[in-house]
Nucleic acid binder design. Structure first.
Lengths: 139, 139
DNA sequence: TGTATTCCCTACTAAATCGATAGGGTTAAT
DNA sequence: ATTAACCCTATCGATTTAGTAGGGAATACA
């Protein structure tokens, strides 16, 4: 299941990408527009900022803004920040690899074989999709 | 993340498919061979039996057996029984569809668009894979 | 300089899920 | 009758998830 965190995060990023002006967008506005609990969203955007996807400005007229053009923000990066590993099992993860306790030989493991395929296909989607695709922005 | 339940279930099915004889295979044997907690595995095989994928025989020399040839057991079915919906969000699920509370229009939802693609690709893998592929059985 | 606004950060909590165990009931072979 | 096996329900501890609380720090602007 996709976590609410990821879902809200994607919606927020889309919202920011669609906002016309160059002004930073406030948490409160996004929360209201997208029906997201404000305090919860605050934490999510904080995570996205720490990962370098968003920038922020404090104080009056502050808010969050994209650090790159929507077309340069890949879903692989966003998903890894929000949802964690893309693979369904650690022994198949590119970025968070971990050996299984059971399983003497990965190459003989039926689960491994199947999950590699799922990972590759999911990765293909995330690699070919940017925030511009999500937000219908052409930039 | 793939649940242990699914992982164990897939390993158990593979084990049964690979077992040469036509005799039912006992939980205890699978548990020992695949390093799975026996009681936990018991519940999993029960689920697979209730769903019609496995059959069982009680009493001495009892155990579990496949109800169909490995090449006829599709991963779509197995995964739905063990892991639940294949889609990452209910609003994208074919078999367990549910509308989102937020989200006035699905067709405009950026998350929806992305998750449809992931679902389609995952589904493609599961539809094209059978237990025969997992177990290297040619039947 | 003061004040409102906005992000920043930590801690906490309720509920759900997961992984696993316990313990007995039922059926079938010998 | 005994034993081997599945059948079924309940329970439990740990972890994760979704969300809340509350105060701190920076900035705009009067």
């Amino acid at each position: 299941m996709l976590s609410k965190k990821t879902k809200y995060g994607l919606k927020a990023l889309t919202f920011i990408a669609r906002s016309e002006s160059d002004m930073p967008v406030q948490v409160s506005l996004i929360a209201k527009s997208e029906q997201i609990p404000p305090k919860f969203l605050e934490g999510i955007l904080l995570t996205l900022r720490k990962s370098g996807i968003l920038g922020s400005k404090k104080g009056k007229h502050g808010g969050y803004y994209l650090r790159h053009k929507p077309s340069e923000i890949k879903m692989t990066d966003v998903m890894r920040v929000l949802e964690g590993p893309i693979a369904m099992v650690p022994c198949v993860s590119l970025n968070y690899y971990e050996k299984c306790d059971d399983c003497p030989d990965e190459n003989l493991c039926s689960v491994h074989k199947l999950m590699v395929q799922v990972r590759d296909n999911t990765l293909k989607v995330f690699r070919n999709t940017t925030l511009a695709d999500l937000s219908n922005t052409n930039v």
